[in-house]
Amino acid sequence: MSSFVGYVKGDLFQLTKEPTLKPLLLAHACNCMGVWGGGIAFAFKQRFTSAYKIYHKFCTDFRSDPSSLLGKSLLIPVSPRDSGFVKGAGEKLLIVCLFTSVMGEESAHEIATNTKNALLDLKKQLADPTLVYDKTARSIVEGYESKTEELTVNMPKINAGIFGVPWELTENALKSSGLPCRVFVL
């Protein structure tokens, strides 16, 4: 996989309206407490309630040690019942939760390191779908046959909002992950 960070002016969620044959990865930085209460996470929650429920339950399973999720990623499918589901894209849409902070108390450098590790975890899951937690998400990744065309991780400027991480730190984490990333800016 080749690493690059590209920038697109526009709304990340516009991608969910375009038909696709390959998995569509929309990533955001998440806390480990099962809360999508603000920022882009809240926008995901409003559009894809089913994905939020999977994320919340997943975090609940780690309630005794939420920090063990740091540097991990979770791929979640969406449901046709979600308000943001669009036929032609929704069947291939995967929300990627990057666990970068327990609840925002880590330093900017720790969050950036957790971001890099979460992207490396995502890279492993894409290479070996048996590692994907959710069975529907796993089948979407397994169903992608092309090894010649890489999947791009689409995201807003993660960590820069509520977590307050300087963008340069996150951008360096993206570059060092070995994954192609496309960052949407409004």
Rank of each mutant, 00 (worst) to 15 (best):
residue 130 T to A: 14
residue 73 S to M: 06
residue 75 L to W: 05
residue 25 L to P: 00
residue 93 L to N: 00
residue 35 V to I: 13
residue 92 K to R: 12
residue 117 N to M: 13
residue 116 K to W: 12
residue 57 K to Y: 14
residue 65 D to H: 13
residue 129 P to M: 04
residue 107 S to A: 03
residue 33 M to N: 15
residue 115 T to V: 07
residue 112 A to E: 00
residue 65 D to V: 10
residue 56 H to A: 14
residue 105 E to N: 14
residue 130 T to Q: 12
residue 94 L to K: 01
residue 113 T to M: 13
residue 105 E to C: 10
residue 83 S to C: 09
residue 114 N to E: 05
residue 36 W to T: 02
residue 43 A to R: 09
residue 67 S to C: 13
residue 92 K to A: 06
residue 107 S to T: 14
residue 64 S to V: 11
residue 49 T to G: 11
residue 65 D to A: 15
residue 69 L to T: 02
residue 41 A to T: 12
residue 31 N to I: 04
residue 40 I to Y: 06
residue 45 K to F: 11
residue 74 L to W: 09
residue 109 H to I: 14
residue 127 A to L: 12
residue 95 I to A: 02
residue 29 A to P: 06
residue 43 A to L: 10
residue 20 T to R: 13
residue 44 F to A: 08
residue 119 L to V: 04
residue 65 D to Q: 13
residue 29 A to G: 13
residue 123 K to W: 03
residue 55 Y to H: 01
residue 81 R to S: 15
residue 130 T to P: 11
residue 105 E to K: 15
residue 83 S to V: 14
residue 108 A to F: 10
residue 56 H to D: 13
residue 116 K to C: 09
residue 66 P to H: 09
residue 119 L to H: 03
residue 48 F to A: 01
residue 93 L to G: 00
residue 118 A to F: 03
residue 119 L to N: 02
residue 90 G to Y: 10
residue 122 L to G: 02
residue 77 P to V: 08
residue 88 G to H: 06
residue 118 A to Y: 01
residue 40 I to D: 07
residue 32 C to D: 03
residue 27 A to K: 05
residue 63 R to Q: 15
residue 91 E to P: 05
residue 32 C to A: 12
residue 21 L to E: 14
residue 49 T to D: 11
residue 79 S to A: 06
residue 127 A to N: 09
residue 75 L to R: 02
residue 81 R to G: 11
residue 60 T to S: 15
residue 101 S to E: 08
residue 52 Y to C: 06
residue 128 D to G: 06
residue 53 K to T: 11
residue 34 G to Y: 06
residue 92 K to N: 11
residue 85 F to Q: 02
residue 45 K to H: 14
residue 88 G to W: 07
residue 128 D to A: 12
residue 100 T to Y: 02
residue 49 T to M: 12
residue 75 L to V: 02
residue 61 D to P: 08
residue 132 V to G: 07
residue 26 L to S: 04
residue 99 F to L: 02
residue 109 H to K: 15
residue 101 S to N: 11
